[in-house]
Design a protein around this nucleic acid. Structure first.
Lengths: 338, 338
DNA sequence: TTGAAAGCGTTACCAC
DNA sequence: GTGGTAACGCTTTCAA
């Protein structure tokens, strides 16, 4: 029992496939009300479903976009995806998710697949769109938007918060609460987005306040995950036991810090203040609830998708967007009482 | 500048499109090594990329599957998706994610889209595949598997843990630790998967141990999220202040319980033991780390995808699978010291 | 208002 | 080995 085609419907309804097609596409008048009704009924009766593949072939529109994540599980990706999916759905589009695992070869492979599948746009998240991908991007010749990162490829807009500034403010927030010995749990300093800028912001705030700022105060990690934080925290405390506040550059690292602090016999926020970064659902669930620099991931995802669709529909490329961040005060930071 | 086609390559290389096609498909010998090399080179030179849409049209294979989630953000969906994506990738397939928002109309709409896009299989997660979807499932005529839920549609296999048993064991675990006044934070009792069975397991353990088991010990929620838990916890404590242990039927509810407990002046696990359900990354990040019934979501996702691909490739439908669960002991449960 | 037919980019069968 | 061509399911002129 092969799948029904427009042809089957045409035969059954005693009309030409052209007419069926017209009716299918609601194309304004190319048929009478009567035949329309009749054809629609036979379609229903036969359980006909149009073949989007055939349609795409001729219309050159697949109504599909691709999204690349370095890591598909985890709250950060998850929330961005949520925002993206919502607007794609709004436009009647589907989204293909790709887990690149931060691997260049895998990323290229995925881009190739997306190209072959003729997606109408792609959102590249959390990693720098480096020159290595430029050739592919040009060749695909569809709109790209970089989300929560930046692009080395000219003309590809991004949407993200100002990481340096956000970190500066987070640190300043700690300083304003009277803290003088502040440590940082950061990502890798080689990471040009979530690594270095956040470290820079941290340093700037410290320098501006004329507070001690030695490299050992910054405990780098090779990731932003919970597992990464523990060792770094230990190192930080070992070299700077005087620390009274910590800026963690992700929510998971912040969670890690509170866990580790407790093992260290320090209570949060009484003995140690901690400020996180992201404001995923995690932050609200933690005990104590995390004070964080908030980047609204879902909204960023939504914005990126909107920019993408603007270009898909109108051909107009959107300028890069640096989104607002703000500090959400909860319970993990406390003024230093001397 | 239109996209290059096989035709352009053929012309440029002075061969027929048939030959180009053969070379593209690595089809064993229908060309000489020499022409192969030549054609491959011109392809490269022209930046040719095959059109998967056209290929799909004729081959009837889209190398794509669809996955439906009631809620796309959140650790549970996220981890399942991770597992699914991994095996799909293994088979060179792409996955389209669909957020149904637990809405029947939206689910049907998505199924229709997946049908039109000719996906080769679909994974339906976390919600019962009810009779309302049967017509669609039959019509689509591609493999389905239900993940972390069950199916009312005959012949559609599922993969999930035994919720009743898992809950029974979780509760028993609490009992074995000497607790006699146990409460439960559950989902909605009308939920036939994550709701009722878990409540049943809870009750069974209590009854078996001849422990008090009144309905007020079970605080139902309309969801499994953090936000849902707070009120329920309050109600539980209001009616049963003697409670010394709580079984929360999701990790988020457990997190909610530890938060609320603290506000209640109870420390976990000293004054109140809490056992969660799921074992998402959350459980490890909590303070204290959550003791939980573990269902390995990523692995379940992987299994579901494997079952799906087995059927896609061989036509053999897999039997339903009830996966192992186990109790992961961490720090949120403590023996009752009298 | 309707139908015939030419594609859309590929694959696969059949000749040569 | 290689090329011509029908077909995949549909849209869209162009005629009627």
């Amino acid at each position: 029992m092969r799948k029904k085609t427009i042809k089957d419907v045409a035969k059954e309804a005693n009309v030409s496939i052209a007419t069926v097609s017209r009716i299918l596409n609601q194309t304004s008048k190319g048929y009478s009300e009567k035949t329309k009704k009749h054809v629609l009924e036979t379609m229903e009766k036969m359980g006909y479903s149009p073949n989007a593949v055939a349609r795409s072939l001729i219309s050159r529109q697949t109504r599909t976009i691709g999204v690349l994540f370095p890591e598909i599980s985890g709250m950060v990706s998850s929330e961005m995806l949520h925002g993206i999916e919502a607007v794609a759905n709004t436009f009647g589009h589907s989204v293909i998710v790709c887990n690149t695992n931060s691997d260049q070869a895998k990323t290229l492979k995925y881009l190739r697949i997306l190209e072959e599948k003729q997606v109408e746009g792609v959102i590249f998240t959390s990693k720098v769109l480096t020159k290595e991908y430029e050739k592919m991007v040009r060749q695909m010749n569809v709109p790209f938007v970089v989300l929560a990162s930046e692009s080395e490829v000219e003309d590809v807009p991004h949407v993200k918060v100002d990481d340096e500034l956000a970190s500066y403010e987070a640190t300043k927030f700690l300083i304003e609460h009277g803290h003088k010995h502040i440590g940082m749990l950061s990502g890798n300093g080689d990471d040009p987005i979530a690594g270095k800028p956040r470290i820079d912001g941290f340093k700037r705030a410290l320098k501006e306040a004329k507070l001690p700022c030695r490299d050992t105060q910054i405990a780098q990690n090779n990731g932003f995950y919970f597992e990464n934080g523990h060792l770094a925290f230990s190192k930080l405390m070992a070299s700077h036991p005087e620390t009274t506040a910590v800026f963690a550059s992700s929510d998971e690292l912040a969670m890690s810090a509170v866990s580790a602090a407790l093992e260290y016999g320090k209570r949060v926020p009484d003995d140690l203040s901690i400020i996180g970064y992201d404001n995923t659902k995690l932050a609200k669930m933690a005990v104590p609830k995390l004070t964080v620099v908030s980047q609204e991931l879902e909204s960023l995802g939504r914005k990126a998708a909107e920019m993408l669709y603007r270009e898909i529909h109108t051909g107009e490329r959107s300028p890069s967007l640096t989104a607002q961040h703000n500090i959400v005060k909860r319970d993990s930071v406390k003024p230093l009482s001397s």
